[in-house]
């Protein structure tokens, strides 16, 4: 979270530090339930297998939450999420590790756009774009 308060408006091309997310069974189930998604493929391995999946897998709402968290972790509590757009690729299965990375793609005043990508050992789990508003430092004269 360093830099978020001193220099709230980043430069296009700046990289966000990567976030490594251990994809535990607990995270998958806790995320599904916290998002009120009771689809059996997100908590019941037997039923997930019966549907052709090797195991339970992370639901899209959890991925969405993690992508949002990844960006706000970096920009701090004053940053406001405006838009989160994600597309899923390969599933997040228990025992995997997802590494989230992000690049500032666009800066327009206080509006910042971040390209986000989450990779696990099967490939790309998620690609997305997060748009947020970062408040310019209060002491700055603004631009």
């Amino acid at each position: 979270m360093t830099g978020a308060s001193e220099n709230a408006v980043p430069e296009p091309g700046a990289q966000l530090p990567a976030l490594t997310v251990p994809v535990t069974r607990t995270l998958i189930v806790a995320g599904a339930i916290a998002s009120r998604d009771y689809q059996d493929v997100h908590h019941d391995p037997e039923l997930a297998r019966a549907k052709g999946s090797p195991d339970v897998f992370m639901n899209i709402l959890t991925t969405n939450g993690l992508v949002g968290r990844y960006v706000t972790d970096h920009f701090g509590p004053a940053a406001v999420l405006r838009r989160v757009v994600i597309r899923l690729g390969v599933p997040n299965y228990p025992g995997d590790t997802m590494v989230l990375s992000g690049t500032v793609t666009e800066v327009d005043g206080e509006t910042v756009r971040i390209g986000v990508r989450g990779e696990n050992r099967l490939g790309t789990h998620v690609t997305g774009t997060v748009t947020l508003t970062v408040l310019a430092p209060a002491s700055s004269s603004g631009s």
Partner: peptide
Amino acid sequence: HWCEAMGDTNPA
């Protein structure tokens, strides 16, 4: 519960 699951400690 959501923040605990996501590991999100944002004070907001």
